[in-house]
Simulated scan of single mutants.
Amino acid sequence: MLPTGELVVLRPLEPDDADDFWRWHKDPDVGRWLVADYHESFAQTRARFAERKPNSHSNVVLGVETLAEGKLIGAACLEGATPETARAEVSFYLGEKDYWGRGYGTDAMRTLCRYGFEVMRLHSIALWVVPENEAAVRLYKKVGFREDGRHRDAFRGVGRWHDLLLMSLLEGELT
């Protein structure tokens, strides 16, 4: 059974999802806080999606799809997990701006963390976020993440460097 929340379902990515990702990554509002990649053509994006490695314990990449319409609106990833450490890092974003600020991000993050704790048997989930990305910081705190530290000038944004906050959530702290 796929991880399902109140508003979203998390599902494996399909090759056809490349179309949405390519469109999202061209939008400066969506890409503002993402790690900048080298530009790739639409054909290169499609080829990359067609050749994706299968999900595994150490790297789970899922699409965020609305429960009601079945529309892909974002992506969520748990990476770097090992059974020995029971830790993983999360990366997450919504690419469809019409769904921003409507609870879909919160539901997706809760669903992903619940999957990490219950299915992957993780003890700790961590993430890095730019403090100026206030909406993301609020979302992470809302689901229970706490600030652990700061990495100074670690993210190159448009025209300047930004600090990164390290935040984590332990098993049992999900709200």
Rank of each mutant, 00 (worst) to 15 (best):
P3I: 07
D16T: 06
D17V: 08
D17E: 13
D17W: 14
A18R: 04
D20N: 11
D20I: 10
R23N: 06
W24Q: 08
H25I: 13
D27I: 06
P28F: 03
D29G: 01
W33K: 05
L34S: 10
V35I: 13
Y38K: 14
Y38S: 08
Y38F: 14
Y38P: 11
H39A: 15
E40S: 07
S41A: 03
Q44T: 01
Q44G: 07
T45W: 08
R48N: 02
R48P: 00
A50C: 11
E51P: 05
E51S: 08
P54V: 13
S56Q: 14
H57Y: 15
S58Q: 13
N59F: 01
V60F: 01
V61Q: 11
V61T: 08
L62I: 03
L62R: 11
E65C: 01
E65W: 10
E69V: 00
K71N: 10
K71A: 10
K71E: 15
K71D: 05
L72S: 00
I73W: 10
A75G: 12
C77P: 06
L78Y: 00
G80K: 09
A81M: 14
A81N: 06
T82H: 04
E84W: 10
T85M: 13
T85S: 11
T85F: 09
A86P: 01
R87F: 11
E89M: 15
V90S: 14
V90E: 08
Y93L: 04
L94G: 00
L94C: 03
K97L: 12
D98V: 10
D98L: 12
D98A: 13
D98Q: 10
W100D: 12
W100N: 05
G101T: 11
G103H: 05
Y104F: 11
G105R: 00
D107I: 06
M109R: 04
T111L: 04
L112T: 05
L112N: 02
C113S: 12
C113K: 03
G116D: 03
G116C: 07
F117S: 02
V119F: 00
M120C: 06
H123S: 00
H123R: 14
S124V: 15
S124A: 09
S124W: 15
A126N: 08
A126G: 09
W128R: 14
V129Q: 07
V130F: 05
V130C: 10
P131W: 00
E132H: 11
E132R: 13
A135K: 14
A136M: 03
V137A: 08
V137M: 12
R138P: 04
L139W: 07
L139Q: 09
K141R: 15
K142L: 02
K142H: 07
F145W: 04
D148T: 01
D148S: 03
D148R: 00
R150N: 07
D153H: 11
D153A: 13
A154F: 06
F155V: 01
G157D: 01
V158M: 15
V158C: 15
G159D: 08
G159W: 08
R160A: 09
R160H: 08
H162Y: 03
D163V: 09
L164Q: 02
L164R: 02
L165W: 09
L165Y: 01
L166C: 14
M167H: 02
S168K: 05
S168G: 02
L169T: 04
E171V: 13
E171S: 11
